[in-house]
C-alpha cells in the first residue's frame, strides 16, 4: 500500500501555472495600471523639469537621474507592494491552501509569480523608456550591460524585500499596509522625494545601502558611464539573500 512513488510536477506544470498566472493578470486590467501607468506619470512629471544640459558623456539629467529613479520605482512597486498583496489575496482566498494539498511545491508557485512580476516590470520599463525616447529625447545608458545587470540585481533585491513583507506579516491585509510603508520608507531614504543630498546625513548614508537608494545610485552611475561602486551592489545583494532566507524559513500557505 505504501509503494507510492513521488511524482514531482515538472516543467509542464510550471508552464501551465505560468500561463494561468499571466491570464489572471491580463484579465485583471485594473491591476496593470499601477506598474505601467505610474512610472509613465512620474516620468512626464519630472522630464520637463530636468534640464536638457548634458551632465556627463552627453547624458542629460533626465537620463542619469530621472530614468534610474523611474525604473527603480517600477521595480519597487511591483516587488514590495504588488507581490505581497497578490500573495495576501491568494492566502485570504485560500488559493494557496488549495495548491498546498496538491503535489505542487510552494516554490514553484512563488517562482511563477516572480516571473509574472518580472514580465510586468519589463513591460512597465519598456513603456516608460519608449515614452522617454519619443517624447523627451532620452539617451540610452553609456554602459548598457552594467545598467541591465544593476536592474536585474535590483529586481532580485526588491522581490526579496517583498518576500520578507509577505512572510512576516501577521495577517494578509496587514501585508499590504506593511508593504506600502516599507516602499515609502525605502523610497524616502533613497531619494524618491528629492535628492538624497537634502536628507540628514545619517539617513542618507543608510539609504545608500538600502535597495531603493542603492538601485538608483548604481543605475545612475551605469547610465552616465561612471564605475558602479561596490557599496550599492553589496547592499542589493545582501537584501536579495536576506529576503530569500527569510521567505524560505517563514513562508506559509495560509
Amino acid at each position: 500500500m505504501t509503494d507510492v512513488t513521488v511524482h514531482r510536477p515538472g516543467p509542464r506544470a510550471f508552464a501551465e501555472l505560468l500561463i494561468c498566472e499571466l491570464k489572471s493578470v491580463a484579465r485583471d486590467t485594473a491591476g496593470l495600471i499601477v506598474p505601467i501607468g505610474l512610472p509613465m506619470l512620474i516620468l512626464v512629471m519630472n522630464a520637463s523639469a530636468a534640464g536638457r544640459e548634458p551632465v556627463a558623456h552627453g547624458r542629460t539629467a533626465l537620463d542619469v537621474f530621472v530614468l534610474p529613479l523611474v525604473f527603480t520605482m517600477v521595480v519597487a512597486t511591483t516587488g514590495i507592494v504588488n507581490m505581497p498583496s497578490f500573495l495576501a489575496y491568494y492566502r485570504r482566498s485560500g488559493i494557496l491552501r488549495r495548491l498546498g494539498v496538491t503535489p505542487v511545491s510552494p516554490v514553484m508557485v512563488l517562482v511563477a509569480q516572480a516571473v509574472v512580476g518580472a514580465l510586468q516590470i519589463a513591460v512597465g520599463i519598456a513603456a516608460a523608456w519608449i515614452l522617454a525616447v519619443l517624447a523627451f529625447g532620452a539617451n540610452p545608458p553609456v554602459r548598457a550591460g552594467a545598467a541591465i545587470g544593476v536592474l536585474a540585481l535590483t529586481v532580485a533585491a526588491m522581490y526579496a524585500v517583498g518576500l520578507i513583507v509577505a512572510a512576516l506579516s501577521p495577517t494578509p491585509n496587514s501585508s499590504v499596509a506593511i508593504g506600502l510603508t516599507v516602499f515609502f520608507l525605502l523610497g524616502a531614504t533613497g531619494g524618491m522625494f528629492g535628492g538624497r543630498d537634502s536628507l540628514p546625513e545619517a539617513i542618507a548614508t543608510v539609504g545608500q545601502w538600502l535597495p531603493f537608494g542603492a538601485g538608483t545610485e548604481a543605475l545612475s552611475a551605469a547610465w552616465m558611464g561612471a564605475p558602479v561602486e561596490a557599496a550599492p551592489l553589496i547592499g542589493l545583494a545582501a537584501a536579495a539573500v536576506c529576503g530569500t532566507v527569510v521567505a524560505a524559513l517563514f513562508f506559509r500557505w495560509d
Binding site: C20, K23, S24, R27, D28, S93, G94, I95, R97, R98, V101
Partner: peptide
Amino acid sequence: LQDATLHAA
C-alpha cells in the same frame, strides 16, 4: 477544502 477558492479569472 471547505473555504478554499480558486483563481477567480
